[in-house]
Design a protein around this nucleic acid. Structure first.
Length: 694
RNA sequence: GCCGCCUUAGCUCAGUGGUAGAGCAACGCACUCGUAAUGCGUAGGUCCGGGGUUCAAGUCCCCGAGGCGGCUCCA
C-alpha cells in the first residue's frame, strides 16, 4: 500500500506515433437523450446520471478505451453531447498498447507487493509487450518472475478499477515522496518526452479494489487505461526476461532492473506470439551456422571474429561472385586496399578524432626507446582499418581526374575491423571483423540526383535477386547540432535522396536528425520470411571527405571542382547479409546458393556407381553434388540429406538404373519418380541458373 | 563498457562436496534394404582458464576468457 507512483508513460515513438496505424475503431456521434452535465465547479459527484464513453461505445469487453474528439481517453471519461466518441478495440494498435500499459501497472503493483523496497522507474508499452523498470535491492531471479506472474494473476482476478485522478504538482510531490525516480520526472529531468502528462496536468491512476473500494496501489501516469484489471486476460500475458537498463536510457545514470513482459488480447494470441519466438529461435543464424556447419567463432581467435567453414565458404563465394558480376555490369571498377594503415590517414579523414574508441588500438612500429626511457626514434602508429573510404579517396586522388571519368565508382570487398564493445558483439550481425561490399561513387553535383536514382534501383534489384522483396525506405536527415556542410548542400542531397526514394513507390519513413555528420542517408529496410525487419543497404551522401582529402576534378570549363562522394554498401557487410539470408531461408537456401545442391542417394550400394555417373553429368554443369556412399540405409540417408536442407535428393535403385532415370525427392517431401537423367539435369541446372526457390 | 545468467565429449544436455554420464554425431563390424533414424561394438573429457576454501571441488568462493539476454553504442 505504500507504493504511489508516477508513470511517465511510454517512450515516444514506440507506439501510437508509428506510421499507418490502422484503427479498428468505429465512430459514434453521441446523441444526447438522457444525459446531463454533472460536474459542478467543486468537482463533487452529483446524483445526476453521468454519461461516460463506456455508455456510448462500451459493453463489449474488446473495447478497452475510447477516442474522444480524437484523443485516447478512459472509458470512464464523461462525455458531452457534441463529443465525437469512437470505440478503440483491444485488437487495434492503440488498444493493444493500452492493454499492455495497464499490464505493466499490474506488474509494478505485484513487484511492490513482493519487494516493498522496490522503487518505480518507468513502464511503457513496447512492440509485443511492455516493460517496467525498478530500483531493486537485488536483481530479479527467474523464480521471482514466476512468483510475480502469480501475484499479477491474483491482482487481475481481483478486478481492480483503474481510476484517474488529477493532481497538482505540490500534491504529487507529497504523494510521491517515497518514489525518487518519479519525483525526478515531475521535475525537469527527462523533459516533456518522458513526462507525458499531456503537457497540462499531472494525473495519478489509482487501482481500486472492486469490492471494498479500497485503494490498492497507484502510479502517476498519463493513461489511459483499461477500465479494470479483468480486461487483462490472465493466461494471455507472460513475463519474459529481466535485464538491467539505465535510468532514462543514459549510460551515466543509475542502472535499474527491468522486467520485460508480453501481453495479448487472448490466450491464442499469446500462444501465436510464443510460437513466433520459437520459430525465430530455430532460425537463429548462430544456431543454424553450427547445425549446418557453415561458420564458427573460435575462442582462440577472439570475440566477434568468425571463420567460415567449407559449406559457409561456398555460400559466401556465390554471394560475392554474383554481386561482382552485377557490379561489373553496373559500371563499377574494382579496387583493393590494405587492412592496415598509418594513423595519419584516419587523422586526415577525421575518424581517429571521433571514432578511435571503436578502433583496435594501434600497433606502434619502429620506435626506439633507451633503457632510461628516452625516445631515440619516434615510432609510427598503424591501425587496422575500420572503413575503406579514406583508401578509396586516395585512389581517386592518385592522379588528376577529369569530369569525363565521373561518376567514378570504386568497389571493393573490403575487410574492416572495429573494436565493438564486448557487450554488443552478436554472431555475424555484429562482429569485430567483417567484409563490406563497399563502394564509393565520386560524381559531380549535377550528376548526384540521377546517380542516386539509378543506385537505389540497382540496390533494390540486387536484394530482390537474393530473395528479399518486401522493403521500405528510411531517410535520415540532418542533425543541425552534429553536422558539417552548408544548408544548400544538405537540402540538395536530401531532396535528391527523397526523390529517388519516391520513384521506387515504396513507403518512406523519415528519421529526423538521424544522419551522420557528413551527409544524409537512405537505408533499405527489408522484411524477412517471418516478418522481421532488417536494415540492409545504406546510401550516404558525403560532402566532407572530398574536402578533407582535397579531391578535385577538372570540369569541361577547365576549372577544378569538388566531387560529391556517395558511400554505399548493399549487403552492409557480407557476414551480416549472410546471417540475414540464413535466417530468411531458415537454412533452406534456393539451389543457386545452397552449399550442396544435390545429394544422390543409392537404394543399395550396388547403385553407387550409377549415381557417380549421374553426379558426373551434373558436375559438368557446375552443380555441387555429392553421392552418399556411407554405410547407412537409404532411409537414413534421406533423413540426413533432409536435415542438411539440400534442395534436391536424387535416388536411384534397380528400376531407375534400368530406365536410365533417377527419382527426385524435394525438401518438402514430395517426389517425382523415374525422371530421365537428362531431364533431371536440365531441371536442376535450370533452377540454379534462374535462381528460383524450390 | 554496465547488469544478470551461462560454460561438462564434435552437438544437445544429465550429474546431493566423495572414482565423469546419456542421446545424436564420429569410427569399426554385420546387414544390401525404394522416400525422415538397421543392429552390435569402439573411441571420445585439462568438467572454459587461473587462483582459493576443504581430508576431498565439475559442484563452494575470487579473478580472467568466451557465450546468452538486455542497456548504452553501431563511423
Amino acid at each position: 500500500m505504500q507504493g504511489h507512483g508516477l508513470n511517465s508513460g511510454s517512450h515516444p515513438g514506440d507506439w501510437l506515433s508509428g506510421r499507418a496505424l490502422a484503427s479498428h475503431a468505429r465512430g459514434h456521434w453521441f446523441e444526447p437523450s438522457i444525459a446531463h452535465r454533472t460536474s459542478d465547479e467543486h468537482g463533487r459527484r452529483s446524483e445526476q446520471v453521468t454519461t461516460t464513453a463506456l455508455d456510448v461505445v462500451g459493453g463489449d469487453r474488446s473495447t478497452v478505451v475510447a477516442r474522444i474528439n480524437g484523443e485516447l481517453r478512459d472509458l470512464s471519461t464523461p462525455v458531452a453531447p457534441d463529443d465525437v466518441v469512437e470505440a478503440v478495440s483491444v485488437d487495434s494498435p492503440e488498444g493493444l498498447a493500452v492493454l499492455r500499459h495497464s499490464t505493466a501497472h499490474v506488474l509494478a503493483q505485484a513487484v511492490q507487493q513482493m519487494f516493498p523496497e522496490a522503487r518505480l522507474g518507468i513502464g511503457p508499452p513496447i512492440k509485443d509487450g511492455f516493460y517496467y523498470d525498478f530500483d531493486m535491492p537485488r536483481p530479479f531471479t527467474p523464480e521471482d518472475l514466476d512468483a510475480l506472474e502469480k501475484a499479477m494473476v491474483a491482482i487481475i482476478k481481483s478486478g481492480q478499477r483503474f481510476e484517474r485522478r488529477v493532481v497538482d504538482e505540490g500534491d504529487a510531490v507529497r504523494e510521491l515522496a517515497g518514489e525518487p525516480y518519479k519525483l525526478r520526472l515531475i521535475g525537469s529531468e527527462g523533459g516533456a518526452d518522458v513526462m507525458e502528462v499531456g503537457g497540462l496536468e499531472l494525473t495519478v491512476y489509482d487501482n481500486v479494489d472492486a469490492k471494498t473500494g479500497e485503494r490498492c496501489w497507484g502510479d502517476l501516469c498519463r493513461g489511459p487505461h483499461v477500465p479494470d484489471t479483468r480486461y487483462i486476460v490472465p493466461n494471455a500475458f507472460k513475463l519474459m526476461r529481466t535485464a538491467a537498463a539505465y535510468w532514462l536510457g543514459d549510460q551515466r545514470n543509475e542502472q535499474l532492473q527491468r522486467v520485460y513482459g508480453t501481453a495479448w488480447p487472448s490466450k491464442d494470441d499469446l500462444r501465436a506470439h510464443l510460437a513466433f519466438l520459437e520459430e525465430a529461435e530455430k532460425r537463429d543464424h548462430r544456431r543454424l551456422g553450427a547445425e549446418l556447419d557453415l561458420f564458427s567463432f573460435p575462442e582462440q581467435i577472439g570475440s566477434g571474429l568468425a571463420v567460415f567453414h567449407p559449406k559457409g565458404g561456398v555460400i559466401r563465394r556465390v554471394m560475392e561472385d554474383y554481386s561482382r558480376i552485377k557490379h561489373e555490369q553496373g559500371g563499377y571498377e574494382f579496387v583493393n586496399s590494405p587492412h592496415i594503415t598509418k594513423g595519419q590517414l584516419f587523422e586526415q579523414s577525421g575518424h581517429l578524432d571521433w571514432y578511435s574508441d571503436g578502433m583496435y588500438p594501434p600497433m606502434q612500429l619502429d620506435a626506439e626507446i633507451d633503457a632510461d626511457g628516452t625516445v631515440r626514434r619516434q615510432g609510427v602508429d598503424y591501425y587496422l582499418k575500420p572503413m575503406n573510404c579514406p583508401m578509396h579517396s586516395l585512389i581517386f586522388g592518385a592522379r588528376g581526374r577529369s569530369y569525363r571519368e565521373l561518376p567514378l565508382r570504386l568497389f571493393e570487398f573490403g575487410t574492416v575491423y572495429r573494436y565493438e564493445k564486448s557487450g554488443v558483439v552478436q554472431g555475424l550481425t555484429r562482429a569485430r571483423g567483417f567484409t563490406q561490399d563497399d563502394a564509393h561513387i565520386y560524381c559531380s553535383r549535377e550528376q548526384m540526383a540521377a546517380e542516386l536514382d539509378s543506385l537505389l534501383t540497382f540496390t533494390l534489384n540486387l536484394l530482390r535477386d537474393y530473395g528479399l522483396d518486401d522493403f521500405y525506405l528510411e531517410l535520415s536527415t540532418r542533425d543541425p547540432e552534429k553536422s558539417v556542410g552548408t544548408d544548400e548542400e544538405w537540402t540538395e542531397a536530401t531532396e535528391a535522396l527523397r526523390a529517388s526514394a519516391e520513384v521506387q513507390g515504396l513507403d518512406l519513413v523519415l528519421d529526423e536528425g538521424g544522419a551522420a555528420f557528413y551527409g544524409p542517408k537512405i537505408s533499405v529496410q527489408a522484411k524477412d520470411a517471418i516478418g522481421r525487419t532488417w536494415q540492409m543497404s545504406t546510401i550516404q551522401v558525403d560532402f566532407q571527405t572530398p574536402q578533407r582529402f582535397d579531391l578535385e576534378y577538372q570540369g569541361p570549363d577547365g576549372t577544378r571542382h569538388r566531387p560529391v562522394m556517395i558511400h554505399r554498401a548493399l549487403f552492409g557487410s557480407i557476414e551480416r547479409f549472410f546471417a540475414v539470408l540464413l535466417e530468411h531461408y531458415a537454412g533452406a537456401y534456393p539451389p543457386w546458393l545452397a552449399p550442396v545442391q544435390v545429394v544422390a542417394i543409392p537404394v543399395t550400394d550396388a547403385h553407387n556407381e550409377y549415381l557417380d555417373g549421374v553426379a558426373g553429368r551434373l558436375r559438368e554443369h557446375g552443380v555441387r553434388v555429392e553421392v552418399d556412399t556411407a554405410d547407412d540405409r537409404m532411409q537414413k540417408k534421406i533423413r540426413t540429406a533432409q536435415k542438411s536442407k539440400v534442395p534436391y535428393m536424387l535416388i536411384a535403385g534397380d528400376d531407375d538404373v534400368a530406365a536410365g532415370a533417377v527419382s527426385f525427392r524435394y525438401r518438402d517431401g514430395t517426389q517425382k519418380n523415374g525422371v530421365l537423367v537428362e531431364e533431371a539435369v536440365t531441371e536442376i541446372v535450370d533452377a540454379i541458373a534462374k535462381r528460383t526457390q524450390v
